[in-house]
Design a protein around this nucleic acid. Sequence first.
DNA 1: CCAGACGTTGTT
DNA 2: GTCTGG
DNA 3: CCAGACGTTGTT
DNA 4: GTCTGG
Length: 222
Amino acid sequence: MCGRYALHSRPEVIALAFGLSEAPATLVPRFNIAPAAEVLIVRRETGGAPRPALVRWGLLPRWAKDPKRAAKLNNARGETVAEKPSFRDAYRRRRCLVPANGFYEWKRVESRKQPYYVYPAQGELFAFAGLWERWEGASGPLETCAIVTTQANAPMQAIHDRMPVILAPRDYARWLDCSADAEVTDLLVPCRAEVIRVHAVSTAVNRASNDVRELIEPLEQA
DNA sequence: CCAGACGTTGTT
DNA sequence: GTCTGG
DNA sequence: CCAGACGTTGTT
DNA sequence: GTCTGG
């Protein structure tokens, strides 16, 4: 699954990678983004070029009555996203990309949990398949997002059985185009093994308030 | 008809 | 909002 | 995702 | 154990 990630590229690099019509607002480099954080997404509303937006990670369905108590959905299973009441409208009309330099997964080894950092073999940015939603409250709208997950590919399987859907640049436009009822389920598959690299990292990443570049660096092997 | 759920993860 | 269960 | 809290009373 | 906060 995907419960933490990093995004530290400069805004100009992100704008170039995703063909943004405007550069994203100045972003603080983040090495430990956790659910409930404000995160950068790329979306394309009613045609035009892809645009950046900051939304809360943890999708709140439109019909949630009490956003305080409602479950925030960090991930959406690709296998069922088209049918689930919480996701299907967003899946049809509000797809987005979630830029990331890499993500963390924890491997359970007996009673211990070893974190790993997963990052692109080439280039510096992943695009996770995402969904966004807008909840209309008395105090204004609240926009949220979820990251779509799929079965782990071979290298990930050694760590965990799920991973985020990582889209190739050639598929960005098709995922983002929600104007027609285009069929995009074929995109919700594990990426090829060669797309990712993995290394063990310090358990310092466990604490969400730790947010330094060292978190993504490989653990020194004794 | 109304009431209540609506999700993922991991763990057992 | 929409679907399922009672 | 993991870490940390998880409660009431009365008083300041 | 379960929920909330980061």
